[in-house]
Design a protein around this nucleic acid. Structure first.
Ligand code: FES
Ligand code: FES
Lengths: 162, 162
DNA sequence: GAATTAAGGATATATGTTATCCGCGAATGG
DNA sequence: CCATTCGCGGATAACATATATCCTTAATTC
């Protein structure tokens, strides 16, 4: 069980978009250069964010992406699910139905106890991600990233934002 | 992010092994028939359990698998990690190092804030699985599975256990 | 009109999952 | 001793998914 690397990309890109001034956009090209990522493939991740209505886009020169909502109203889970999908990590294939001792046509009243535990763990994972807002991440980063790097990064970004 | 189907298989097999009388073994063949699974491939999952020292094996006719510890001392996490591996679901590829605004040779003091949140969620998932014991599963199943199916299943199993 | 952009389709490659087959050595039962 | 039954590990193939690139289209800017 491994998450796509696109998850890391999308989270970092959203953190950058959260720091943009209102009304300006940042292009895939800039985000790819900033993070050293393949532009074409990063574009797929950003499209996922767009389809999930987490970001808005505009075309043409000075076009690109911006957040569709304030960063305090976007959770880690929103971003992770946009890229990774909302499907649960554990899928029950109902192997209990193959038990040869079962009467034919017997129908279970509940989902399997095994699956319920696995789904509970999945929910715990999602709840953790649900509780962390994008704005929390930006707060943490602005504390931890050395001020000169933080500043020069946003100068770099603003130079390319439309 | 999706778990292997072997996880479902291993958990169900362990639940059966937990119901075996002391000292007896159950073969891959029996476990595969009981759950309608490909014998050869299920064998790989059981080998993983064996390598993790969750089960003990013996060879020859009347050989097979049994739990290496009481079911109250085996957690869901033990079983899931045996099959799925202990690696975290999120791997940080350090894309922050590619920031062109970074001074060359700058070294981060902490893991990235993004990764820390993802790892925290991973821990929440593992903690949920850690808290559930195999014996808890057996208790739940013995309550929920209709008594006649439960009984005939173990008759079926005992007939094949060595 | 020329340049730039996001979007989406097609395609290729790498990796991981699922599955099967085989041979080995150990244990059992006759 | 011998045939059978096992777990174990290696090799291999089929299939799905993740990663990556390329191309076309339509919208936007200047
Ligand atoms: S049958 Fe699917 S988890 Fe039990
Ligand atoms: S650099 Fe890997 S999660 Fe931030």
């Amino acid at each position: 069980m491994i998450l796509k690397s696109q998850v890391e990309w999308a989270l970092h890109c959203c953190a950058i978009l959260a720091g943009l001034p209102d009304g300006s956009y940042l292009s895939t090209k800039a985000l790819a250069e900033l993070h050293g990522l393949p532009k074409e493939y990063l574009s797929k991740a950003l499209q996922s964010l767009s389809q999930a209505s987490l970001v808005e886009t505009t075309l043409g020169p000075s076009g690109g992406y911006r957040l569709a909502r304030p960063s305090s109203e976007i959770s880690f889970l929103d971003i992770v699910e946009a890229v990774e999908g909302k499907a649960r990590s554990f899928t029950c294939t109902n192997i209990r139905e193959n038990n040869p001792c079962r009467p034919a046509g017997y129908c279970d009243s509940k989902p399997c106890a095994v699956a319920r535990v696995m789904w509970e763990a999945d929910e715990a994972w999602r709840n953790t991600l649900r509780r962390v807002r994008l704005s929390d991440l930006v707060d943490t980063l602005s504390e931890e990233v050395p001020p000169d790097i933080w500043r020069s990064t946003f100068e770099w970004v603003l130079k390319r934002a439309g």
